[in-house]
Every structure is written in structure tokens, then in C-alpha cells.
Design a protein around this nucleic acid. Structure first.
Lengths: 237, 237
DNA sequence: GTAAGATTCAAACGATCGTTTGAATCGAGC
DNA sequence: GCTCGATTCAAACGATCGTTTGAATCTTAC
């Protein structure tokens, strides 16, 4: 019996298992998105994927490792593309700072492309990702932290050059807000049913990002607190 | 040996059950926040509350109804306070529109007050609320929709007067982004461990909202898309 | 064909889940 | 005293969970 991991041997091993593994990953992506990690059972998952119940533990080791695989499959390339787009923009700008708008755009485009690629998860994955952001499970926190560390560091550096009047500390917070609005929007849980009034629109994804980008850029460019006066915490003049 | 409560006995029925119900609600608030709804079992919950396992079903009917009670206990007063603060600001402004800053402040203050009131859940509840925002479970979606409908409608009206150049449709989206940044920040799952650099600060809550408010105000005031030119979706000159 | 390993399969494992039950216990009103 | 409704309690319900097992099946190399 294979204790932890079946050692790869032949060529056919990978090809044959790839099909089963992919079916599991696809089914898991949809079900984890729809019901969450805990509420999705391996039985309904393997049933939806038309594979045997034991296949998950055989190919991935455990339910948690399957979830990790589902996330990394899409997240790794997306964040890689984000970094590449940023580097391209930096080269085009020569030595000068990249504009705030272009940095945000570089950040949003890979997410938009992923949302549009129905063959590769489409909106489902972004919704799953949005959920994962709010999940306190340690293995999820660790996973996201690892996956995002490089990308966030690069973008923080770029924003710092584009917005020299914003302190690093302030920028850290604002990037946090940006990721919050982005992940919440991506999750699209429609908490307050506000989509009801705009649901008739088509091609929601591109339109969504075209609305989100100016909002985020304006927030990032906002004058720092305490510049002119403090926020008034109590109403009154 | 029955109860460690020598408490006063008036209407014994209500007082006794109130105590048990409150202990259940308090324990549930912490555990749901920490592990989520599905991952929290009634056995660990009732054990933490020092009540019998059957007490949850006796007092609340089911696990889902308990979750609903946990949320509404804090959410109802908080949103009520939000509406009252907004009405106060509107009266102070006479017939003129309330400024965007004051509207946002009226929205954030009740959340800040709740986060500070350790006796009534404190930060734990806001984190739980942030998680609930990203949960796709139908009964949670319905609950939040019901709880927020009035408040959101009132605030959208106020923002519409303060920002007459922003279309209602655009405003709907931007309020969505605002709620996203707010709930994500409130959840405070520290997804990317960005707090590490600012963790030394004290009184994080007030400081947090003082940073969040200008960010959101700037985003709300941003010129609408297509005002001067479209967002460039591909990098170029 | 045969051997060896990779993969699939049905079945069961022990554990834990939310909920229900019926008796025991409590407090208040007569 | 007693009754009666409200509450607590231990115990069990049936169901479902993630995981493991060992044999059956398939694939590849000789």
C-alpha cells in the first residue's frame, strides 16, 4: 500500500491519473464554491466527478490537500500573470513610476481573464477565492499567505513609487482595502441583492472591473488622514 | 449542583432560560467566528457554554436558527443605530445634502462602537459578520438581505443626494465596493499577514476606521467611468 | 503470456454529526 | 401539601462524515 504518495514511475501513470485528477479538481471547484469546504462531502464530490470515493485520498492524500490543489491550480498562474503584467508596465515606463491606473489595471486583468475563461473555472473559481479570503482555517490562511506574498510585495513597491506622498504604512492599509473590495466583489455572493437592479446587463465581468478600477484608484490616491484635519468621529461642526 | 447561579428569582421561567440562552449565544458567537458555521459542532458549543446538548434545540429549535439569533442580536441594533445617526445628520443639514464624509462616518461609527464593546461581542462579532458576508448558504443570504435592506436603501438615498453626478446604477456598484472593503476589513482574517507591519499599534479599531473612511469617500467621489476616457484594459501608450 | 506496478472499486472502519426522546428536576400558584 | 408547566439531563437515534483496506482491474515492459 502506498503510505503517503505513490511514487511516479511510468509515463502512462501521469496521463491516466491526470484525467481522474482533473475531473476531481473540476467538481471540487464547483462544489467548494457553492457549499464551502466543510459543507462539501467527499461522497457528493466524487459522485459529481464520476470517480470512486477513494480516489480523492489516493490522488491527493486528504480533503484539505485537495482544496489546496484546487486553489493553487488557478491562483499560481493568475498571480504569475499579475507580476508579469506589472513588469511589462514598468519596462514601458522606463525609469519613471508606473501610473496608479496602470498598476490597478495590471492587477485586475488576470482576474478578469480568469473569470472569462469558462473552460478553466470561470467565475466559479473567483467566487471560491473570495470565500477562501474570509475563511479562518489555518491551512487556508497559510496557503493564501504563501500564494500572495510575492505578488503583494511587488505591487506595494510599485504603488509606493506611484504614490510617493502615501506612507508605506498607509499604503499597507489601503492595499488591504483594495484586496477586500476585490475579493468581496469576486465572491459575488450578492449579499444585499443589489445586483437585482443591474442584473439585466450583459458581460458583467468587464463592466464590473471598469467600475471597480476607478473606485480603487481614487481611494488609493486619497489624501492621507491627518493631512488637513482628522476624521470627525462624532457628528457636529 | 444544578446551577451555580444564586441569582435573583423574579419570573423564574424567563430569568432562568435567559441565562441559558445568553450563555449559548455568547459561546456560539465565539465559536462560529473561529471555526465557521459548519465546522462548529453543537457538542463543543454546548460544552463551552456549560449547558446540556439538547438546550440548543430546546431554546432555538435548530442550529441554523441559533446562528440567525446570534447575528440578529447584534446586527439589528447596529443597523438601527446607523439609520438614526443618518437621520440626525440629515436634520442637522436642514434641507441640504449631508456631506459624503458624514454619511460614511454615520455608517462606520456603529460598527466601531460594537467592536469596542467587549461585553457585547466586541471584535469577535464583526469577524463573524465578515465571514457571513462571504457565505453562500441560502438561509444566511436571506438573513443578511433582510437585515440590511432598509439600512442600505436609506444610505443609498443619502449618497445619491450628496453625489448628484453619480448615477444610481453607479452608486449601487460603489456601495457594493464599500460594503466589501468594510466587511473584509471587519473580518480581519489577516489573509496576507499585512498586519505584521502595523501590529504594534494600539487602539487598532479607531485607527482602522480613520484610514478606511477617507479611502471609501475618495472612491465614492471618483469621477464616473467614461467621463473623460475609458479604463484602458490593455497596457499601451 | 507473464510479472509488476498503477489505478479503480466495493465495502467497511470508527468517529462525529444534528436531532429527538422520555424521565428527572425545578419553580410558581393554588 | 400538591399539581403543572418550564427547563435540564443522560441517552440514544439514524445519518453522514473522512479515511482505510484488500482485492479486482487496467497499463506497461519484458
Amino acid at each position: 500500500m502506498a503510505s503517503t504518495r505513490p511514487a511516479r514511475k511510468g509515463v502512462a501513470t501521469d496521463v491516466a491519473s491526470q484525467d481522474t485528477k482533473t475531473r476531481i479538481l473540476d467538481a471540487a471547484e464547483g462544489l467548494f464554491m457553492e457549499h464551502g469546504f466543510e459543507a462539501t462531502s467527499l461522497r457528493q464530490l466524487t459522485s459529481a466527478a464520476s470517480v470512486n470515493l477513494a480516489a480523492v485520498n489516493y490522488h491527493f492524500g486528504s480533503k484539505e490537500e485537495l482544496f489546496t490543489a484546487v486553489l493553487t491550480r488557478r491562483l499560481d498562474p493568475m498571480n504569475q500573470e499579475r507580476i508579469e503584467l506589472l513588469e511589462t508596465a514598468e519596462k514601458e515606463a522606463g525609469g519613471k513610476p508606473v501610473t496608479c491606473e496602470k498598476i490597478i489595471t495590471a492587477m485586475l486583468i488576470p482576474a478578469l481573464r480568469l473569470a472569462r475563461d469558462e473552460k478553466r473555472g470561470g467565475k466559479n473559481f473567483l467566487r471560491l477565492l473570495g470565500r477562501a479570503y474570509a475563511d479562518p482555517a489555518p491551512f487556508i490562511r497559510q496557503l493564501l499567505s504563501d500564494q500572495y506574498a510575492d505578488m503583494i510585495a511587488r505591487y506595494k513597491e510599485a504603488f509606493s513609487k506611484a504614490l510617493p506622498h502615501i506612507s508605506r504604512q498607509e499604503l499597507t492599509w489601503r492595499l488591504h482595502f483594495v484586496m477586500g473590495a476585490l475579493s468581496y466583489t469576486a465572491a459575488g455572493t450578492d449579499a444585499l441583492r443589489i445586483y437585482a437592479q443591474v442584473g439585466a446587463e450583459k458581460d458583467n465581468d468587464e463592466l464590473l472591473l471598469q467600475r471597480l478600477a476607478p473606485f480603487l484608484v481614487a481611494g488609493l490616491k486619497a489624501p492621507p488622514v491627518g493631512d488637513s484635519r482628522k476624521l470627525e468621529l462624532v457628528s457636529g461642526d
